[in-house]
Amino acid sequence: MNPRKMKQMMEQMGIDVDELDATEVVIRLEDGSELVFDDADVTRMDARGQETYQVIGEPEERESTAGEVEAGETDGESGGIPEDDVELVAARAGVSAEEAREALEATGGDLAAAIDRVE
């Protein structure tokens, strides 16, 4: 089937497909390892509100770096909350950095929950 016809049929069924300009995709596995895709082709498909992502590329397997904090990324009083997360919550929710930090600490570092909490 030609790509133009396929796209037309998908639009008729309410399916939107977008190519994402991803530079890296990381999948963290339960065993503590990660699959890292550099320069992967990523496609997002939205079918009536349900989003799915397709990642095409060759992964490199490595040990997980989740939870590791680089020196200088947090201050001593933050309780391990990265400054970037505090700034993000503060900017998205339109609150002070102190309010953002409190919300992040209360939600265990969950960005979305912290934003919801202060909005």
Rank of each mutant, 00 (worst) to 15 (best):
R4W: 03
M6F: 12
Q8H: 12
Q8G: 05
M9G: 10
M9L: 13
E11C: 01
Q12R: 08
M13Q: 10
G14H: 08
D16R: 10
V17M: 13
D18T: 09
E19Q: 13
L20E: 07
A22H: 01
V26A: 04
R28A: 14
E30R: 07
S33V: 06
A40V: 00
A40K: 08
D41P: 02
V42E: 05
D46A: 13
T52F: 02
Q54N: 06
G57M: 02
E58Y: 03
S64M: 00
T65V: 10
T65A: 10
A66W: 01
A66H: 06
G67Y: 02
G67H: 06
E68P: 06
E70P: 00
E70G: 15
E70R: 11
T74G: 01
E77S: 06
E77K: 03
G79A: 12
G80Q: 12
D85C: 11
V86A: 10
V86N: 07
E87Y: 00
L88Q: 09
L88F: 08
V89K: 02
A90L: 01
G94E: 01
G94I: 06
S96C: 10
E98W: 04
A103E: 02
G109S: 14
D110C: 11
L111V: 15
L111A: 10
A112G: 14
D116M: 15
